[in-house]
Write a protein that binds this DNA or RNA. Structure first.
Lengths: 341, 341
DNA sequence: ATGAAAGCGCTAACAT
DNA sequence: ATGTTAGCGCTTTCAT
């Protein structure tokens, strides 16, 4: 079976056609007679031939590889269950569209700088998906300057940037409104890092919900975390002296931390303090008590990010695209009511 | 600055040398006079030229891309904090060795089959890292048959397979011995899936520790989980009627589930039931009570897997390599003693 | 030490 | 509908 290396030349020879014809059937292109097509396909099947993607890339100028870049600035979050979900979605999108996924993580600023340069100037990647990062992450302008097609996962303020995100503000608004309707006073907020637009949007949703209900904003009821469990724990500790009756926590992971602080302080949830998280991670279900939360379709955002990128690859980056997906309130025990608000 | 597309030809022209010379300095090869070398380097720096990796790959037959394959069989575990850690290690290894990492996940058996075929026959990847999977995963023989250099993360029984793993048996042995020394009777085991060699090795360690102390093995104290939190919970539920005084749980994630079952059953940990997990995940520290566990150097195994693969790439796959890393007992509150056994 | 030239395996424009 | 041919951008003999 293995007569010489298996190249399109071999296939063409074995099928008794020219390389172009072999190439045509390989790429499912028209202008091949049914008989020829079948003959070539038979040879391909028999030999198990797979065209060399490198050679293909060189001549077609499309590598069919896209990069997923997770900047250093948010790598502390990489252990959050959020990422596996996102990666599953992105991987699925890639597989669906017959592309290979490359993953870029960094372990020092120097490494990041070096790879940012490569990613933007290299022609290895057809396009890039960048996860939400500091708004001033230098990768974004670099990608734009070098005309590398890319999509952000999470919104970005530059109007030229295409992104897919989730309606964080409305999600947070829904959560807080739910707490208000349940009659909770003194609703606190554990927010995410200041540099995160998602965190910022969730904070806006919180503020909007309270303002709409004419509730005075109490700054001492707003503390900042960084999306990690520990930061949720510490934030709750700082909140405790101010006696919140409810807390909207900007991520489930932080909510788990808050829950831990509450348990150690002997506070009953939801009786004394009601809690609502954000994300709807698997752990939300098994938490004690189970966490009411705002579900966001993470995996789907991954699939859509790939789809958006494919669209850009085919039709150009302009005009920029935006997709904003809705969230959903999932009521469990931690908010003190199974009533839908 | 941008006169024509930036190719090695341009660089050579700008530096006033031939392409060969430009190529030599690009690849840090000898036989270039210092003066020439400097001139070329200057041009490269000024233009920000990055050689096209695709063209490079085609002519050098080395893509500098390695694949990380996570088979469908274990994708339910992909949300375990284990994976981000592993991926960070592997990514670090790749960056250190100037290689790109591609990630392969699957979402159906058909997709897996198709991609297995490509991965093995494609010359896109220089090599592959495969995470521990079913012992009969068809990928392994396919990679061998097609002479694709690869390394397994987790041991494999085929003697031709190179792998890096952790000393699971000794780790488990240490954990159980610790429980014995603390005077616990009726030490139970929550094990991982039968198809997992790591789970099997941990079970062997459990058995060995008990046998060595002449403790009778009680089959009703051995229940199987699948490494997920829920399975740990359910396993503990099944264990409860048999009144174990201690449980060695084959992963921290399952231990968290066991802890939940224990809490709901009103059992005090460690007073009534002592617990030791495996992995030393971040959650082990913040669990209630904090989890005594067997720490395994996950990230390091990732780095080493890449290093082993690089070695194979340079020096051939034979003889097969094996690295087995030691584990470490980390004593916290859940085992009922801070005494080192 | 340097350069000329032959590929690497494929796609795509062009010719038939 | 099919075949011929010229690259894609680089590495790598082989001359010099």
């Amino acid at each position: 079976m293995a007569e010489g290396k298996l190249t399109i030349r071999q296939i063409a020879k074995l099928a008794g056609v020219s390389r172009s014809t072999a190439s045509r059937v390989l790429n499912n292109r028209p202008n091949v007679s049914p008989g020829m097509r079948e003959r070539v396909q038979k040879v391909i099947a028999e030999t198990g031939y797979v065209p060399d993607p490198i050679a293909r890339s060189l001549s077609s100028r499309r590598s069919k590889i896209i990069g997923l870049v997770i900047p250093l600035a948010i790598q502390s979050l990489f252990e959050d269950p959020f990422f596996p979900r996102l990666m599953q979605g992105i991987s699925q999108g890639c597989n669906d569209h017959d592309h290979t996924l490359s993953l870029f993580l960094f372990h020092s600023e120097e490494e990041e700088r070096k790879l940012y340069h490569r990613i933007s100037r290299n022609r290895l990647l057809d396009g890039v998906i960048v996860t939400a990062t500091r708004t001033d992450d230098p990768l974004i302008p670099q990608l734009i300057a070098n005309r590398v097609p890319f999509v952000m996962h999470g919104r970005h303020e530059d109007p030229r940037v295409s992104f897919v995100e989730v309606d964080n503000e409305t999600g947070a608004y829904t959560a807080v409104t739910h707490l208000v309707r349940l009659g909770r006073q003194r609703i606190a907020l554990i927010t995410g890092p200041a540099a995160s637009l998602a965190a910022e949007d969730r904070k806006q949703g919180y503020l909007k919900a309270l303002q709409e209900r004419r509730v005075r904003i109490d700054e001492s009821l707003i503390v900042q975390g960084d999306f990690t469990e520990t930061s949720g724990y510490e934030a709750m500790l700082r909140l405790l002296p101010h006696e919140p009756a409810a807390v909207f926590v900007a991520s489930d992971t932080m909510a788990l931390g808050a829950l831990r602080a509450l348990r150690e302080a002997g506070k009953r949830v939801p009786d004394e303090v009601a809690l609502i998280g954000f994300d709807d991670m698997p752990q939300a279900t098994t938490a004690h008590p189970p966490l009411t939360t705002i579900r966001q379709p993470i995996q789907q955002t991954g699939v859509l990010a790939v789809e958006m990128l494919m669209d850009i690859l085919e039709n150009g980056a302009e005009p920029s695209r935006r997709i904003i997906l809705p969230t959903e309130l999932v009521i469990r025990a931690s908010c003190g009511s199974r009533l839908v608000g």
